[in-house]
Write a protein that binds this DNA or RNA. Sequence first.
DNA 1: GGTGTTGGTTGCATTTCTAAACCGACTCGT
DNA 2: ACGAGTCGGTTTAGAAATGCAACCAACACC
Lengths: 152, 152
Amino acid sequence: MGPNEERCSIAATLDVVGDRWTLLILRDLFRGVRRFSELQSDLGIARNLLTDRLNRLLDHGVVEKVPYQQRPLRCEYRLTRKGADLSASLISLMAWGDRWYADAGAPVELIHDRCGNPIERQPRCPHCDEAVGPGHIRSRPGPGSLAPTGDV
Amino acid sequence: MGPNEERCSIAATLDVVGDRWTLLILRDLFRGVRRFSELQSDLGIARNLLTDRLNRLLDHGVVEKVPYQQRPLRCEYRLTRKGADLSASLISLMAWGDRWYADAGAPVELIHDRCGNPIERQPRCPHCDEAVGPGHIRSRPGPGSLAPTGDV
DNA sequence: GGTGTTGGTTGCATTTCTAAACCGACTCGT
DNA sequence: ACGAGTCGGTTTAGAAATGCAACCAACACC
């Protein structure tokens, strides 16, 4: 897109999943909704768009098609490792919605499967062993760039 | 939208920022790009769309207009507290892009301003004191809902 | 008075999205 | 064997969103 897009991982990510429907599809896949018709009726998305978005996700290796029955051959869509790895992003978006729009409290709580305790969703500094708020994060060029530094 | 949208914080969030341009605008605001013309040329977005997206963000209280000079009165756009709070989401998206698309290493590194160490961007369990991967997160109804449970 | 900068608005062509009909492969009931 | 139903799509036509370029207003500077 713009001149500064090439070296930005946010833009790279949005090229793949930066679409309202795509993100909602991924949310449903995380929730265990995996079949075409289930996704369609759950989301209320037009069928051609659902086809298009799923194919795009297949192309990018974010989901894969897995047969759940033969004769007639029917497949469901599952997150690949790469796709599952988006959970942190969806969780962050959810955290923001919880915080700013869920007046009655979070509709859903996320918990660690092993211990049952709620999960923390803030960036944190392992060195200082504390959560790091928006105002205390800086950026600097990483191994893959020469760009200047700024605040995040 | 679909039938299951009402009580989902992800959908609520996407209603506000679930748009490719909106997320890129927010990224730029985090990076310190604040003026209309800077945003326009940096992103390569059409001016009418930029106007529209900024107004939408203003309406939702995610950004605010702050004069940076009088005569002629000119304003820049700044993140509110609510907007700044989206940093965790953008950071997660960036982390995913870094991981799956930055072959040469992350273009940008995020560090804690106080100590200069890189920030951890994974959800974690404060109880077990460890990072929690995608496969080890479960969901259950929170204080604001009656919905059934599933995996995330 | 003419030129430049900033922050827009307007109008029109192009792209994308929605809704609804249609289709192929198959199963099941009778 | 026939008709109805399910699943996973494709096609089509109209509505909405987007992109692009031109225009505009307020001012500064010279």
